[in-house]
């Protein structure tokens, strides 16, 4: 029984990581077709950095992702604070309402966003992309921050006020340091959600603001090139870098606790 479960675990692991491993291996494959490994090359990386359209799409996705994640985290923080701390009238309604964009099929959101934008006469472009992505990332950020905030003792902020702190000082000296891991988590979750989104982007992107997933999707018509493997490999490396950076700072926090005794 134990052997069986350990084999299953290994199989799952393989299933999860084999595609990533293949991606990395084939990004260095000198053959143009993926069923043959001919030899080692950096050619696809060179082509990638020469592909202006793809780089432009990468830049658009990064910019939209950062702005949408920032907006979602800031508004999410304030929304979560209001919902957790104050006896707002209709609190249960608001909490439910925040979840709705997570449940409504994205395609429906996409159509309705486009309707709103065209009715309001807003041309599709960077602004509409960011707005569209905020709609789907705000609920995530709010949920993450609400969870973290409701586990904080409400008298901490009152104590800070009592000791003479303004709301801003209370945020900077008490709330932010205590909630930093959750704020970071909310930001990263929002960013990756935005970065990989395809449905909302289809409706809200305009000419010249094609996002990376849209660009990749459109190249399917002409067939996948190993150039995309190279791009994928770079994204995996970037992700690992973020995880390591966050992980290391988290580790330091955990270790810093008991080691401050003189």
């Amino acid at each position: 029984m134990d052997r069986l479960t350990s084999w299953i675990a290994r199989a799952v692991f393989l299933f999860l990581y084999l595609p990533i491993a293949a991606l990395i291996v084939y990004s260095f494959n000198s053959s143009e077709v993926s069923y043959r490994f001919d030899g080692f090359t950096f050619r696809w990386y060179a082509e990638l950095f020469a592909d202006r359209m793809l780089l432009e799409a990468l830049r658009t996705s990064a910019v939209v992702g950062v702005i949408a994640a920032l907006v979602a985290t800031v508004i999410g923080f304030l929304t979560a604070f209001a919902l957790v701390r104050f006896r707002v009238k209709g609190r249960a309604f608001f909490v439910g309402a925040i979840l709705i964009p997570l449940i409504v099929p994205e395609i429906v959101l996409g159509v309705s966003l486009l309707t709103v934008f065209s009715t309001a006469g807003i041309p599709t472009g960077l602004l509409t992309l960011v707005l569209g992505h905020v709609v789907i990332t705000l609920p995530l950020a709010t949920l993450v921050l609400m969870g973290a905030m409701s586990s904080l003792d409400p008298s901490l902020t009152e104590a800070a006020t009592d000791l003479g702190a303004s709301p801003w000082v209370t945020f900077r000296r008490v709330l932010f340091p205590l909630l930093r891991p959750s704020i970071l988590a909310a930001f990263l979750l929002s960013f990756t959600t935005s970065f990989s989104n395809i449905v909302i982007s289809t409706f809200t992107a305009g000419v010249g603001t094609t996002t990376l997933p849209l660009r990749i999707y459109s190249t399917l018509r002409t067939g996948l090139t190993p150039e995309l493997n190279a791009l994928g490999t770079l994204l995996v490396v970037a992700t690992l870098g973020v995880i390591l950076a966050v992980g290391v700072s988290q580790m330091r926090r955990i270790l810093a606790g008991p080691t401050t005794t003189p």
Partner: peptide
């Protein structure tokens, strides 16, 4: 000043910094 039943000490600050909080803020 109020002394809360839960004490409401700032968990991320040392004893010293908890006590110094008001002096720094003011």
């Amino acid at each position: 000043n109020m002394l809360f039943q839960s004490y409401a000490l700032f968990p991320h600050l040392s004893v010293y910094e908890n006590v110094a909080f008001e002096l720094r803020v003011r």
